[in-house]
Design a protein around this nucleic acid. Structure first.
Lengths: 220, 220, 220, 220
DNA sequence: AATGAATGAGAATTCATTCAT
DNA sequence: TATGAATGAATTCTCATTCAT
């Protein structure tokens, strides 16, 4: 009974919870539209609060950015879990991709965060790892059902989310669903009938900062 | 009198030309490595000149960025022209994409510039338009030879350059050629045997900032 | 009904008194350890109350600082009063100084407050004036008993408290009693056998902020 | 010939050198008057330059503070060196102290910097170490000539500089030479005729940050 | 009365751009 | 023309103080 039990102690927080929500929404929008370089003051303004309030909720800009990314990733993880129960694994994988790209389609910051090692926080990296694992679960089923090539991995799928989104991005302002075209193309490329071996082995992991050697030799 | 060949004025101009070249090279590197937020002072330092000299050659940072982008686009245009003479049009189209992605693979700034309407200068947009036209020429031949789907356009191909690059980007630090994998997947998706109609019509143009209506109705 | 002794209003007041005490203790510690720049939030936390409560008791940070200083000064005044009853006036004066420096030795803020005119509140200045008077009473007895030079005043003694403390301060972290060494040196300097006239007349008052002229001409 | 040889290369710097001097002067004043918390903008304004110019010359506020401290310490070191050649070592030691206190008398920041471990930069600490060594050289001669107690060290002398300054500080606004009075008292306390053993052993070093144990046992 | 969320003035610092030399 | 010093707007973040609950 989230709204019915307001004791005094909880009611004090009601404003704060509302502001936090406003902030996350405003920040999601602002990052999506303007990228990670959007000033905190802009986010505060969009949320209708003072600058100080942003910092009360998120002590640093990075914390806010991480929170936004985690929101996105958590939703994706939830979707992946849900789709594991679908009968048609190929369909489920496609739906997962569609959902993921749909989320990204509104988000300029994601590309920047994913691409920049300097912005990679442990929490976000871990969530991406988990996402790759879930995506691998979905992909494994699709492989077993013969819906996709044998050498496609969950990490491929996650990478393609960002890539397909990026492909359509220049069009999104005017045609917000244009990414569907490129998802279709990419998914056709993943299908099992494309039997020729891919010219480069599957990626192992997305961890960027690890100074260790690459996980497998370069394939000529 | 370095080479006995000129007046003082000419020598001065020669220095200037040399500095411009140094600057373009340094800026290309710096933008590629660090993205568009790299400070002008960093570029000046890499070029071995003073900050003022950068601004003499490029009155604003945007001008420099445009010059870099034009360089990149010019090279791509040249490649497209050259490949028009290849016999196998499907092969040629693939080579064009490989060359384009290879250029982008070393360039952090390109994704950022393409994605940000605020950074889109008329000159760059025009060059991208021209690139789409050349890509369309290559694509038309490939379509005619049955190498790719009937409803694939040059603009699709140009958009895919950025998208495929973005797909592989998180891997590029450790595996600089990982994009080849995703080019193969995408190109398989473009092939003619994928005959099902795409769920979204081909994009007409890439002009981002124009507030005019979209060129065709959204496809449900 | 904690002790069965009061109405709700009285209990509330009791809490308030308790909080005030907690706050003074916490603030004394915090100012002593960290200096005047310690944030109010730190003080609230140390006291185990919310920030708002600090401001209910002390409307501004300055008010709190003044309260702390008054505490310190009151203790010193009490010590001075007590020592007026000692038989050996020289000994008493020394004990007064030792007690004062001991208090300061644990207090980073005092030096900062004393040194900064901007922080000098009327109340604190008045207390310092009173302290100088009490110190003068002690000093007068010591002068009469031949324990210190004839031209030493109470104000000299009060100033020396801060000075001796400051002398030892860099050592206090590792050797909390190091000030005893410098008190001994200074007190030896005050003794009557040092009969040569001091090269500068005794200070009249400590009032710092008054823009009026100096109380006596500069001695060349 | 500092001013006579202005080549082009050096003339370019002429402004800069002048601004640096203005800045050091303004900062010395500002720190002396207001303490280390004076805003950089205040220093810029006093120097008549823009904020950015301060940061061009001193990349961080700490750098500026260190520069100011080093200026002061260098002057003191120079004085110590000069006074080593004086015949009367007691007189020389006193002159050293007078000179040091005179420098400090105009400087509020010194006390704060000396007292706050967090502000102790290696460079400053090293200079203070060197100053203690020079002071020890002067003190050793004075000890040998019987001018001061046998157990007074150079570190004592350096500590007394700050202490005597602090003693007089509240008076300095109105009576800039009041410190002479307290120097006389302190120096009388140092004299050899005060033969009673001091109640605390001499300090070994001023290094504050070292987490090692204290250099000698506490003397009761 | 207590709480702790919100406020907003201000601090250090960065960097594109201008301009004197 | 090249230089690099100066500028000042913008940005992140802090903290005393106010105020709704």
């Amino acid at each position: 009974m989230e709204a019915g039990d307001g004791t005094v102690a909880e009611r004090v927080r009601a404003d704060s919870v509302r502001n936090r929500r406003l902030l996350l929404r405003a920040a999601t929008e602002a990052f999506a539209e303007c990228g990670v370089d959007v000033p905190m003051s802009e986010i505060a303004q969009r949320a209708g609060v003072a600058k100080g309030t942003v910092f009360r909720h998120f002590p640093t800009k990075d914390d806010l950015l991480v929170a936004i990314m985690m929101q996105l990733l958590d939703r994706l993880l939830g979707t992946a879990d849900r789709l594991m129960r679908a009968a048609d694994a190929g369909h489920a994988l496609r739906d997962f991709m569609a959902h993921g790209i749909g989320l990204l389609a509104a988000d300029r910051a994601f590309c920047e965060v994913i691409g920049r090692p300097s912005l990679q926080h442990a929490e976000v990296r871990d969530a991406i790892d988990r996402l790759c694992e879930r995506a691998e679960d979905l992909t494994a089923r699709a492989r077993e059902q013969g819906a996709v090539r044998a050498d496609i991995t969950g990490t491929d799928v996650v990478l393609l989310l960002g890539g397909i989104h990026q492909t359509a991005q220049p069009l999104l302002d005017r045609e917000p669903r244009a990414w569907q075209r490129f998802l279709e193309i990419a998914f056709d490329g993943l299908r099992a009938r494309n039997s020729a071996v891919l010219p480069y082995p599957p990626p192992a992991r997305l961890r960027v900062a690890d100074p260790a050697g690459s996980p497998h030799a370069v394939h000529t």
